[in-house]
Every structure is written in structure tokens, then in C-alpha cells.
Design a protein around this nucleic acid. Structure first.
Length: 835
RNA sequence: GCGAGAGUGGCGGAAUUGGUAAACGCACUGGACUUAGGAUCCAGCGGAAUAUUCCUUAAGAGUUCGAGUCUCUUCUCUCGUACCA
């Protein structure tokens, strides 16, 4: 019988996609009689078209979802759109269309592209964050937080992107540049809205422990670094003139007797009063201006020349009573610690270099053995542990103990206290852009800042605006929006025209999916307590800090405000960070012209092949290079399965569903077939379910198919053989079904079987079927491979030793040697130690 | 500097508890079938020598009967972070 050399992927795929849609195959409802499994991929920004990175991300997620569904879980697998943001606005300006129109048409296009890939989403739960029914709830959260002080307004120097015309959060500045457009970020003093993420710094850090094992180490370590906790002490140094004090933060309180100068950030608030009227005031002011005018990159670069200037003032070391000169330093950051550093040049490398440069004396207060040492002999600062010296009553104490003792003394005398400092800063969530969720407050001349009443939500983003060509927000000049009345006094008032950072929307969408159509509340207790947390979250590692930190923060906040159940501390139990899809060794980009369009690949090979290749090319966390030859290989494999299926069916026998779990083999070929089938089920279940190694799962299925090709003619000779071959084929369909679902449905239908392939129970293996009668045992002499023998599985240790020694190739190598020892690893190998 | 991860054929990658290194696939070579094949099938495919060996998992040492896997030292690459007091 003639077989088609190429199966017609497109018609099969469209048919089954329609079938799944018509039959609501992937709808998910709360069902407390079944365990839930929530699998989620990071939702896309509707930029226009899906790219290979999306295909890889969503294919991984779909395998997990379909696998868990077949295992009997009630799987929640939703999809939506991170739809507010700058690109929509910029595209709108460029093409002279409204950002909303652009966004919604992109969503329509991308939704159909995703549907063409056969992903098993419950589309009823789809959300678009730019929809008022979504952002309404975010505005409600905002009001609640404002009431409790979790969100506040502050005037401070901010990261300003001159190209995007907006401020950025610290997390959105990479290398001093805007994360989106790469422009150099400037500092600008502005009044902005902040979310107090620092209130949660401790919990965000501590709970990283709960994620160990479920999240990749490197993501945990990145978050850990970003939060940047350092434990130390705060101490006050009184000014010599009695007009106030300087507070410092140090992680080395044990060196406080060694302070020989003080360094302040030029921006430190006390500086002005210190220097007014001093002889060289003009010179000092010039230094301050010069430093402040530097951009952030130059100021924080490695090559910055450390410079300072003496203020003319002194403060007093609270422990020694010594006069300490107060300097300004261009490397001291106003925003970290207290903006003032106690300098101990003998024990800190940076202070050491500064002291050398400006000829400031040094004082050693720690030495390796507790003996006196002269810092004049130092080539670099002594930063090792040791014994305290020249430290009054603390001399002779090991310095680590000394830290606690000094802090104790600080607290006792009221000079200071133990403190913890974080690198993490509060999250600036206001943006001076149009396409975002409006911040629901108004400003009244009488009442000041007044929150919008909850019953007046949502504050709608007006859609009938004209966008400015230079990207500035049209809201401040759009009178119909700006002009309103004060919710308190009813007099005319002006609306806040800043919108919220789009990372706010993506910080809670996963919870909204549990109850996406709820119009009375953002979520319901019932849905949250059943579905949350997300069991498996999948996305790119570029969100390791930004989105993943914000989402963790939001989860804790929503929990504390009673929106999320008390026992939900973390949103994502397990995180898989998938690698990028490259072409010719670099990231696909339009400018490089190396973009592979998923739509074209689907048209050429079909969705099943594209899915298969994305999963087979590399383990998920690694980057992989797209190759046309590689996808051909995946397509060939599916054709091979196609031919195998039809050959078996047409030329050998009519297949019926059966299970080799019950059937025993009565021939060598049958035994081999049955063993391979069960071994493959075991391997694939482990690879998909536990190890997330889809590439090796697919390799194992390929081996099973290869074995079926090798054995099919032999097996066709007996009824038992046919049954075993039939069972193996059914297993291949089941194992492939999460990966290449369409072709598997087609096979299933061709078998005339009930239901859908994707709704079948996941195959199980039997330990008994994995047992071999004859085992190949490796023989080593002194650890080197010298032979292999086949022995009955039942052979005793002595028999194995005897058989091994009798092997001719082994005897040859043993000539002239004396056997010292024989190590037998049952069922695996024999190592003969001889010399 | 600090933190994390990685280094295996021509290529992507396997080797899960220390136990046959290179599974699976790509590329390549030879053969079969064929009017033809860029289809399909069979065989080969780490290196050197070739009938028997030797070498090989970035380099070196160690532990072990046995190391890609464990320990130490060094090198290289990727990512994050950085005058953080």
C-alpha cells in the first residue's frame, strides 16, 4: 500500500484545534474532589507577532499542562496580555493610530497565532491589563495602600529616561541605562509615588529559603544580591562645635577605635551648614557642584578617580574622644546607609587609598596576633580577622566578638544601635506616560491630595486623546480628564496625571486568572485557596529581579491586606527559566535580520514539528541556536512515526487498544519490546514530571520508535507479538501527546477509539516488566574495560566471578598477574584488581 | 572584587546514587532501492595507530578497586552585582 511521504500537518492541526475549541477541552473549574495544578507561562506583551522565544516558552508550559492533565490533575493553564506600556504608545505615535487600537489588534493577531500552535489554554480566563475591568482593581489596591501608608509621595532625585520621557525604578536601570531603550539615565528631582517594598525587604529575603529547590539557584542569588542586606551598626559622631552630629552606618563596628577621618556624600544635608563661612567655601562648593553634575554612570564607574576635600570641621569619636576631620568624598552615595562613612584606613582598602592620597594618618586596631603593628608598613589595608588592639577595654578581644561588644557599648551609652541596611530601595511606580493605569487621586487647592472614592473606580484612562509626537503624555493637558471635583469638598480639583508602572499590572495577574471574570472583586477566596500558588511558572531569566521580585512583593502585600489567603506567602512554588532562542549565535532581532518567523515554520512543517523541535533542541534552561537542518530532523521523526503507525495498521493487523501491563511476552522479540516500552514510560515520566528535561524524554521516545521498527516484522508473526506491538504503539501516542498533540489525536481517531488522546490517563510502567532475564555485565581489570559477558540475572556473585575470570579476553590480560581482589557490583560489573 | 552557573566529538547535546563516556538528533561518508531524489532503508562516524592496542570529558593534582561525576589548585566563558561603607 502506498503511503504518503509527508503527512498533511496543516489539515490535521486545524481540525483538532477546532475540535478542542468546540468541546471546551481545556476549560478548568474549581473541583475540590481533584488535586489542582496551576501551570503558568509569563504573559506576553502584545507587540504584534509571536516570536520563537514565545513558542519555546509556551511549548514548555503546554507540555507540563497536558502531562499533568493526563496524570489526573485539574489543570489551570491560562493566557493573557501585559498590555499597557511604552511600545504601544510609541507605535501609536509612529503609525498615527491610537495605542489602544494598536494593542487590541495585536492581541487578536497573537491570540490566533497561539491558537494555531494548539496550546491548551482555558481562553475564557484571558485578561488584558489595559482593560478597565482589570486595572480597576489595581486602583482599588492603590487606595487601600494609600490609606495604610504603604504607598506615599516623595520628592527625591529620580532616574529619568530622556527618550522615554518618564522616570524609571531602580530595577529598570541597567548599567546606568534605560532597560527599554538603552538611553543614558539622568537624575532629576521629582515628586513621585513610591511603594514601600523596603517594608518587606526582610521577608522577601528570608522567604527565598522557601523557594530553594523550586527556583534556580542563580535567580535566588540575584534576588539576594539585589535586596542586599548588611548587618552592622549605626553610630553618632558629635560635631566638635556642638552643632549637631553625624550618623554613620558601618558593618565593621569592631574597627571604630581606628577611625581617623569621616567621609560624607557631597549631597549630605549637613554639608551646607558645615561649610558656610569657611575660608575655602568656594572651592568646596565647586567640588560639590562638579560631583553632583556627574552622571550616574561616570559617578559609579570603576575608573572614577577617588577625590575628596576637607570641610574644615571635626567630629568626635564617641569611644576615644579623638577629633576626627570631616571630609567630603565623591564616591560616597547619599542614598546608601546614612550617606556618611566612618573611615578606618588601616582596615578598609578604599579608606586606605584615600588616606594615602591625602596624607591622612592611620591607626591599626586589629592585628593577626594581638601585637602592636604599624600601619606605616602596610601595603594594603588589613582586612583579615584578628585580635583587637589600641581599642581601650576591648583590646585583646577577637574582632568578630568585638563587633557585638562594641554594639552593646554603643547601645548602652546611647551613641548608636545595631542596624540592618538594605540595598533595596522603595519602588517608584509613577510614570509620566499615557498608556498606563491612572493613579486614582486628585489634587484640591483646599484639601490637598485626596484619594478618589472607591465607588468612583475605575478612573478611566481617556481614549479620545491625541498623543504627542515627542512621547510626552497628553494627559496633563487633556482637560476633560484633568479637571474634576474634589471628592472631599466638591470644589474644582485636578487629577493626578501620572500612570502606574506596567510592572504593577504584571505583579498580580496570576491571581486574577483564578477568577478572571469576577466583576465584584479582584478575586474570590474560593478560587484563590483552591488554585494558588502557581505550581509551575515558566519564563525568561531576564525577569529574575524585576518582575519576579515585584510579584513576590505583591503576593505578600495582598496577603496582608486580606486579599490572598494567609498561607500564601509566595506566588510561584517552582520556577523554570528558559533560555533564549538564538540564530547564528546571537539573539534574533530585526536589526540583525536573523529572525525566524514561527508562522512561516508552522506553514512549512506544522505546529507539532515546531513544538517538537523547540523542546528537543536543548534542555529548557539553556540557550539554543535555531537550525533549519534541526527542524527537518524533527519533521522526519514525526513522519517516521506516521509511517510506522500506518504500516502497522494497514499491513500487519488492525490495532486495538491493549496494555502490555497485563500481557506477558512469549518470545525474545516480545520480551525486548515489552521491556523497552515500560522502560520508556518510566524514563519519559521522570523526564517530564520531575526533571523538566524534554530533550531526553523525546530521545527516549525516538529510541522506542527505533526499536519498534527493528522488531515489527518479527512481532507480526504471532498474536502475542502483535498485541505487544499494538500496546507499544498506543504508548508512543500517549507519551507524545503532550508534545505533539495534533498528530496524536489523529492517530487516536484512526484507531477508532473513544475520547481524545489528550484525555487519556498517562501510561504507567510495571517494575516487573523492567526485569531482564539476561544481563550484560562489564568486566574491568584495574578499572579498564576488558570484556563483557551475558549472564543470567539469577547468577550468584561467585558464579559471576567465575564466568568473568573464564572469559578469554580477560584471561589474556591477566597473564603474569596475580589477582588481589575482585569487586562485583551486582547486575552491572566485575572489576578484577591484579598486579 | 563579590555571588551564581558552565566547560564532553565537526555541531546541538546524553551519561539521574561514583560503575561500559559520547544515548538521541544534526552534519558527513559508503551502499541499497530508484527515470530521478533534497524521499526511504542499511552500514559507518572522538583521536592516533590499525587486526591488537593506546589516548580522550578545559589543565594539573588528590581520594577510590573504579572519577565526566567527589576534593583541592589553576585557566576560560556566561550571567548578575559592584567604590554598599
Amino acid at each position: 500500500m502506498a503511503l504518503p511521504s509527508r503527512y498533511d500537518a496543516e489539515s490535521i492541526e486545524l481540525k483538532w484545534q477546532q475540535y478542542w475549541a468546540d468541546n471546551n477541552s481545556f476549560h478548568c473549574e474549581i473541583d475540590k474532589s481533584r488535586p489542582k495544578y496551576y501551570v503558568l507561562e509569563m504573559f506576553p506583551y502584545p507587540s504584534g507577532n509571536i516570536h520563537m522565544g514565545h513558542v519555546r516558552n509556551y511549548s514548555i508550559g503546554d507540555v507540563v499542562a497536558r502531562f499533568r492533565r493526563m496524570q489526573g490533575y485539574n489543570v489551570l493553564h491560562p493566557m493573557g496580555w501585559d498590555a499597557f506600556g511604552l511600545p504601544a504608545e510609541n507605535a501609536a505615535i509612529k503609525h498615527n493610530i491610537h495605542p489602544g487600537a494598536w494593542t487590541y489588534s495585536n492581541i487578536d493577531n497573537m491570540r490566533s497565532q497561539l491558537k494555531r500552535l494548539g496550546y491548551s489554554y482555558d481562553w475564557r480566563r484571558e485578561v488584558a491589563t489595559c482593560h478597565p475591568k482589570y486595572y480597576k482593581w489595581e486602583q482599588e489596591f492603590f487606595l487601600k495602600w494609600l490609606e495604610k501608608g504603604l504607598v506615599y509621595r516623595k520628592k527625591a532625585p529620580q532616574n529619568w529616561c530622556p527618550t522615554c520621557h518618564t522616570v524609571l525604578a531602580n530595577e529598570q536601570v541597567e548599567d546606568g541605562k534605560c532597560w527599554r531603550c538603552d538611553s543614558v539615565v539622568e537624575q532629576k528631582e521629582l515628586t513621585q509615588w513610591f511603594l514601600k517594598i523596603t517594608d518587606y525587604a526582610d521577608e522577601l529575603l528570608a522567604d527565598l529559603k522557601k523557594l530553594e529547590g523550586g527556583w534556580p539557584d542563580r535567580v535566588l542569588s540575584m534576588q539576594n544580591n539585589w535586596i542586599g542586606k548588611s548587618v552592622g551598626a549605626e553610630a553618632a559622631f558629635k560635631l566638635e562645635n556642638g552643632k549637631g552630629e553625624i550618623k554613620i552606618f558601618t558593618t565593621r563596628p569592631d574597627t571604630i577605635f581606628g577611625v581617623t577621618f569621616m567621609t560624607l556624600a557631597p549631597e549630605h544635608p549637613i554639608v551646607d551648614s558645615l561649610i558656610s563661612g569657611v575660608e575655602n567655601e568656594a572651592e568646596i562648593r565647586a567640588f560639590i557642584t562638579k560631583t553632583r553634575n556627574m552622571d550616574r554612570i561616570a559617578r559609579q564607574s570603576d575608573s572614577l578617580e577617588k577625590e575628596g576635600i576637607f570641610t574644615g570641621s571635626y567630629c568626635i569619636n564617641p569611644f576615644t574622644g579623638e577629633k576626627v576631620p570631616v571630609w567630603l568624598g565623591n564616591f560616597v552615595l547619599a542614598e546608601y546607609g546614612t550617606g556618611a562613612v566612618m573611615a578606618v584606613p588601616a582596615h578598609d582598602q578604599r579608606d586606605f587609598e584615600f588616606a594615602k592620597k591625602y596624607h591622612i594618618p592611620m591607626k591599626a586596631v586589629i592585628s593577626a596576633d594581638g601585637k602592636e603593628i604599624d600601619p606605616a608598613d602596610f601595603e594594603c589595608a588589613y582586612t583579615e580577622p584578628g585580635i583587637m588592639i589600641n581599642s581601650g577595654e576591648f583590646s585583646g578581644t577577637p574582632n568578630e566578638e568585638g563587633k557585638a561588644k562594641i554594639i552593646e557599648a554603643l547601645e548602652k551609652n546611647g551613641f548608636g544601635k545595631k542596624t540592618v541596611n538594605f540595598r533595596l530601595r522603595d519602588w517608584n511606580i509613577s510614570r509620566q506616560r499615557y498608556w498606563g493605569a491612572p493613579i486614582p487621586v486628585v489634587y484640591c487647592e483646599e484639601c490637598g491630595m485626596v484619594p478618589v472614592k472607591q465607588e468612583d473606580l475605575p478612573v478611566l484612562l481617556p481614549l479620545d486623546v491625541k498623543t504627542h509626537e515627542d512621547g510626552r503624555s497628553p494627559l496633563p493637558t487633556f482637560e476633560a480628564f484633568v479637571n474634576t471635583t474634589c471628592p472631599k469638598c466638591g470644589r474644582p480639583a485636578k487629577r493626578e496625571t501620572d500612570t502606574m508602572d506596567t510592572f504593577v499590572e504584571s505583579s498580580w495577574y496570576f491571581a486574577r486568572y483564578t477568577d478572571a471574570r469576577n466583576e465584584d472583586a479582584p478575586f474570590s477566596e474560593d478560587a484563590l485557596s483552591y488554585f494558588m500558588p502557581v505550581d509551575q511558572y515558566i519564563g525568561g531569566v531576564e525577569h529574575a529581579i524585576l518582575h519576579l521580585l515585584y510579584a513576590r512583593f505583591f503576593t505578600k502585600v495582598l496577603r496582608d491586606f486580606g486579599y490572598l489567603p494567609k498561607n500564601i506567602d509566595e506566588p510561584f512554588s517552582n520556577l523554570l527559566t528558559q533560555g533564549m532562542v538564538l540564530k547564528d549565535g546571537s539573539k534574533m532581532s530585526k536589526s540583525k535580520g536573523n529572525v525566524v518567523d514561527p508562522t512561516e515554520m508552522i506553514a512549512k512543517y506544522g505546529a507539532d514539528t515546531v513544538r517538537l523541535f523547540c523542546l528537543f533542541a536543548a534542555p529548557p534552561e539553556r540557550d539554543f541556536d535555531w537550525s533549519e537542518a534541526g527542524i527537518e530532523g524533527s519533521f522526519r521523526f514525526l513522519q517516521r512515526v506516521w509511517r510506522l503507525f500506518h504500516e502497522i495498521r494497514a499491513n500487519i493487523f488492525a490495532m486495538k487498544p491493549c496494555s502490555s501491563a497485563k500481557e506477558q511476552a512469549d518470545s525474545e522479540a516480545g520480551k525486548a519490546m515489552r521491556l523497552r516500552e515500560h522502560a520508556t514510560v518510566k524514563k519519559v515520566s521522570d523526564d517530564i514530571g520531575n526533571r523538566y528535561q524534554f530533550n531526553t524524554a523525546i530521545a527516549a521516545i525516538m529510541e522506542l520508535v527505533n526499536e519498534m521498527y527493528g522488531l515489527k516484522d518479527e512481532l507480526a508473526k504471532s498474536e502475542n507479538g502483535k498485541a505487544l506491538l499494538s500496546s507499544a504503539m498506543a504508548t508512543v501516542i500517549a507519551l507524545l501527546s503532550p508534545i505533539t498533540p495534533h498528530i496524536c489525536e489523529e492517530f487516536w481517531q484512526d484507531l477508532g477509539l473513544e475520547g481524545m488522546a489528550c484525555a487519556q490517563p498517562w501510561p504507567e510502567y510495571k517494575e516487573e516488566a523492567l526485569q531482564k532475564d539476561v544481563l550484560t555485565v562489564v568486566i574491568q581489570i584495574n578499572g579498564k574495560l576488558r570484556g563483557k559477558i551475558d549472564i543470567p540475572a539469577s547468577a550468584s556473585k561467585e558464579e559471576v566471578e567465575k564466568l568473568a575470570a573464564a572469559e578469554p579476553s580477560v584471561q589474556k590480560h591477566l597473564e603474569g598477574l596475580t589477582i588481589r581482589k575482585i569487586i562485583v557490583i551486582p547486575q552491572k560489573l566485575v572489576n578484577i584488581v591484579a598486579n
